[in-house]
Amino acid sequence: MPAIPWLVAPLISLLLQMPAMAWEEGDRQAYNNKMALLKVLVDGAKDRATSSGDLETLCILMSIGNDVTLRYVQLNPADQVIQTRLSGMRTDLTSCLAVLYNPLASR
């Protein structure tokens, strides 16, 4: 029985390191998967923001998308398509925050 923890511990540590290894390898598919999930969440938050005025959730999700994209760009600086996307995402986040903190700006 005491040998089981020694067999399980390396497996757990390997599983915990897998996401980090995917970033280090520049895994564009991992980035695309994360952004696809975030897009679904952002679309729902946009609907919620228009129906109930909940801009906080929308801005938070947009900020997460910016962080994920920025991290990808830092690790893959040659990817011009994603750098352009990041620029647009920053503009959208700035607009969201402007409306959130200055409701008169949306009028």
Results as ranks from 00 to 15, higher is better:
P2C: 06
I4Y: 04
I4W: 03
I4H: 01
P5D: 01
L7I: 02
V8K: 01
A9H: 02
A9I: 02
L11N: 05
S13W: 15
Q17K: 12
Q17F: 14
Q17W: 15
M18E: 11
A22Q: 15
W23E: 05
E24R: 15
E25V: 10
G26C: 01
D27T: 00
R28H: 06
A30Q: 10
N32W: 06
N32R: 13
N33R: 14
K34W: 02
K34S: 05
M35E: 06
M35L: 06
L37H: 13
K39C: 02
L41D: 11
L41W: 08
L41V: 05
V42N: 07
D43R: 07
G44S: 07
A45K: 03
D47P: 06
D47V: 07
D47S: 12
D47Q: 13
R48C: 05
R48M: 07
A49C: 05
T50A: 14
T50L: 13
T50G: 13
S51I: 08
S52I: 09
G53N: 03
L55F: 08
T57W: 07
C59F: 01
I60D: 15
L61G: 00
S63N: 14
I64P: 11
G65Y: 03
N66F: 06
D67M: 10
L70K: 08
Y72D: 01
P77E: 04
P77D: 03
P77F: 03
P77L: 03
A78H: 11
Q80H: 11
V81R: 15
V81M: 14
V81L: 14
I82G: 02
Q83A: 05
R85L: 11
L86T: 00
L86Q: 06
S87K: 13
R90D: 07
T91A: 10
D92L: 05
T94S: 09
A98D: 09
A98Y: 05
V99H: 09
V99A: 11
L100I: 04
L104Q: 15
L104W: 15
